[in-house]
Design a binder for these strands. Structure first.
Lengths: 350, 350
DNA sequence: TTGTAAGCGTTATCAT
DNA sequence: ATGATAACGCTTACAA
């Protein structure tokens, strides 16, 4: 009682508890709890009064307290190797949309690509017991990490790439890549270079491999040669695209008339650098990417569109459904992709 | 006791509590608590044993429980109008770095630009009582929202723009803009267009205004005319830069020889569209932006660099220091900027 | 150095 | 429909 008074005198707002509301409304805390959560077994009159009092007092439940009582934190974790790259920022946006629409919080864990503070995150208190479910964005997990997550035993889903034994949402990378390469071939290209993603780094795991495979098989299918000296790699960034182009053009010998890039950012790097080198796109060189990055339209980049935000949104929905008791809500699904032909691809010079 | 056994049989890992550890180590929960948190008053031997047991059991404290007990959630909230735009994603990255390095969690709230689910976020349970401090990224707050935040009474800081009565970290927008415009003037330009940020939208609040002001004053100072028909606006996106360029070039009459853009993304839009229109940059048109976006280097964009990640990192540090008892740790500070001359600016055509 | 026990603010189970 | 009351798992005086 003394405490309640103290608080009221202090100016209220800061620490009004359910008890304060109960006292002010002349009911028990149990009733307040039901009322504010919209649960049944509260008479309309009581509910109204409680809501009014609660509003006036600026009451909002302590998440720690209800978390303790219910065992659920109402927040889901999002694990990402980067946040400022297109795919990831879009995915985060999508997850956030769904999460906040359903009154959940989003706890972001940026692993920073190459296992920097990575170990700490997994083995320590962080992820664990702070979240009800986990959304993993496009990154490989070590067996250890996987094991750890398994033990935590919370709903888990990965977006944008396959992880063994985990449900995942993503496009059909093989089909998407094939589409892009075939587009080039249909245009009449025979000398096609490949700019694939880095295989050494841990992120994007087998996504790069699948894209490489698709390229090779489609080329072979069409009876076209695959030249090792036209097989370049990058790490999905613009800069690596620039560097790849430079290496390609500095090397003596014939030049390709087209290049298939495993991501739009790399494709853009190629285009920027081609412009500097006086190589005209698409007259001298056709460029196709994958993603449909925000800038792709402005640059006229031909690409295969995917929507990471929608993928993440769907994944989040599944997680939340699972948490709400829908058993089996979390399941793998393949997201759509679509070839978008713009101005960086054309028939090869004759 | 019965419960402990049940749990152990269930497979352990999922719900080991401090009591389980205490029992297994033959000490009290108080001692375990001290030991795992590295507090003094625990003999080396006991500590070692406890840590060992805790490790074996896979114990990690429940954040809800300790949150309840201590009144601190160990998470700070980050409010952003967007997450997939350069400034914001970089800032989030910076905040995350500092936060996770100091064992804090980052709870992300994406307000989505124009007050969409915005009201809900502020007036409801979300932000409130879930976080120990708040980092606001470059957005205006309504008086209501401000009032609300004031009442919550947690450390607050804003990055990337001024909000009344709040500590903020950001570059000196006036100086940065002046530098950019002066660069153009020094190059010999007299016919300079302005592509400023949208004033109507709520984000970036007075940042646009300051940049406009700087442009006008520097122009006036140099005795240069400001033509209303060369005063275009955008919303900081590439697309809006493209549209602005189109409007500028479709309009009959003389064309500027240079354009000062209030952001790199808009500058890029201008450049892309100029290329399509056959206008050569920088021969026909010099373009300067602000930001030093990830793509700026690849495109050769002359710009004024700022580092949102470092700004957010500093802001976060201040917040954390304040939480750790350093009174007055949260204070306004101006972040550095630097003119980076690249290849989109040159002397005007003679 | 270590233990006891009283909170912390909710939720949930039973009664009533 | 409403109210006691026992958890929930941890922290923290205060004792020992």
């Amino acid at each position: 009682m003394a405490r309640i008074t103290e608080r009221s005198q202090r100016g209220g707002h800061s620490g009004v508890s359910i008890e304060d509301v109960a006292a002010a409304a002349g009911v028990s805390t149990a009733t307040v709890s039901r009322a504010v959560r919209g649960l049944p077994r509260v008479s309309p009159a009581t509910r109204e009064k409680i809501l009014e009092v609660a509003g006036a007092l600026g009451y909002v439940a302590s998440s720690s307290a209800s978390g303790l009582a219910t065992g659920r934190t109402k927040t889901i974790g999002v694990l990402a190797p980067f946040v400022s790259r297109w795919f990831f920022s879009k995915a985060i946006e999508g997850a956030d949309r769904e999460l906040h629409a359903r009154q959940y919080n989003l706890s972001l864990f940026n692993l920073g690509g190459h296992g920097s503070h990575r170990e700490r995150l997994f083995s320590k208190t962080m992820v664990y017991k702070q979240i009800d479910a986990l959304l993993v964005l496009c990154m490989a997990l070590t067996p250890d990490e996987l094991d750890h997550l398994q033990k935590i035993d919370i709903p888990l889903i990965v977006v944008g790439g396959h992880v063994e034994e985990c449900a995942y949402i993503g496009i059909d990378d093989y089909a998407a890549s094939s589409t892009a390469v075939r587009h080039l071939i249909d245009l009449g290209h025979r000398d096609i270079a490949l700019l694939h993603g880095d295989d050494e780094t841990d992120l994007n795991f087998d996504v790069p491999r699948v894209r490489i495979l698709a390229f090779k098989e489609v080329m072979a299918e069409a009876g076209l040669p695959i030249r090792p000296e036209w097989d370049e790699w990058g790490d999905f960034t613009v800069r690596s695209g620039q560097e790849a182009f430079r290496r390609l053009w500095e090397r003596p010998g014939a030049k390709p008339t087209a290049i298939f890039c495993a991501s739009d950012e790399m494709a853009m790097g190629v285009i920027f650098e081609a412009a500097r080198a006086g190589v005209c796109v698409p007259q001298d060189l056709s460029v196709v990417g994958i993603d449909d990055h925000d800038f792709a339209d402005a640059m006229g980049l031909t690409t295969v569109r995917q929507r990471p935000d929608e993928q993440a949104e769907l994944a989040t929905k599944m997680l939340l459904d699972e948490l709400n008791g829908v058993a089996g809500a979390v399941r793998s699904a393949v997201a759509p992709h679509q070839l978008i032909v713009r101005r960086t691809t054309a028939a090869p010079p004759s």
